[in-house]
């Protein structure tokens, strides 16, 4: 199944969960299903094998995966089995948590710095980014000596580049153009 289809299933599940005020429980349910599949290699093999009939997969799910999970998660897994879309379960879970984070105002980003930041600088930077974006920032901080100086922040497919490397590169381009 394509990524687009996984996004649509995740979107529908998230909307239902929001209506029933059960986003947290559904999220836990999805994680429980994932954990169960990861723990039992045989079950995972049967669950994702295209040649195994749907009835057998449903029986497996009822016995090993769906005990104690939120009813919406149980219904989703059965629907995926019926529609032969169980292969997209991993992408669907990822998309669901992305939607959940967006709804909660969480923003994941990567910060690359030329030199390691101390704790105080880290806290100040995260606080500044949170106030600038109006969201709860969850940073992944990476040391990247290639930058020479300054820092580079990547949010999704947007990059804010304040590094010395970039400044030198643009100076090089201007010099080439001028000479």
């Amino acid at each position: 199944m394509s990524q687009a289809a996984a996004e649509r299933y995740a979107g529908a599940l998230f909307e239902l969960a929001s209506e029933k005020n059960a986003v947290e429980d559904v999220g836990q349910g999805l994680l429980a299903v994932r954990k169960a599949l990861q723990a039992d290699a045989g079950a995972a093999k049967t669950f994702f094998a295209p040649r195994v009939p749907a009835t057998e997969k449903r029986r497996l799910a009822d016995q090993k995966l769906l005990t104690g999970v939120h009813p919406l998660v149980a219904k989703l897994v059965r629907l995926l089995i019926d529609r032969r879309r169980e292969g997209s379960l991993w992408s669907l879970i990822l998309c669901f948590f992305e939607l959940k984070e967006t709804a909660e105002g969480i923003l994941r980003l990567t910060i690359e710095t030329a030199r390691p930041l101390d704790d105080a600088a880290r806290t100040a930077l995260v606080a500044k980014l949170s106030s600038a974006t109006g969201k709860k920032v969850l940073p992944e901080i990476v040391d990247n000596a290639d930058l020479l100086g300054g820092m580079r922040i990547t949010i999704g497919s947007t990059r804010i580049d304040g590094s010395l490397k970039r400044a030198l590169e643009s100076l090089g381009k201007r010099l080439k153009a001028a000479v």
């Binding site: 300054g150 990547t154 497919s157 990059r159 804010i160 580049d161 201007r174 010099l175």
Partner: peptide, 20 residues
Amino acid sequence: SVLKREIEGYDSKVEVESIG
């Protein structure tokens, strides 16, 4: 002369790029 202009007009602006 280019470097002189660059130093005079240097402004540590950040650049926003779209990446993939």
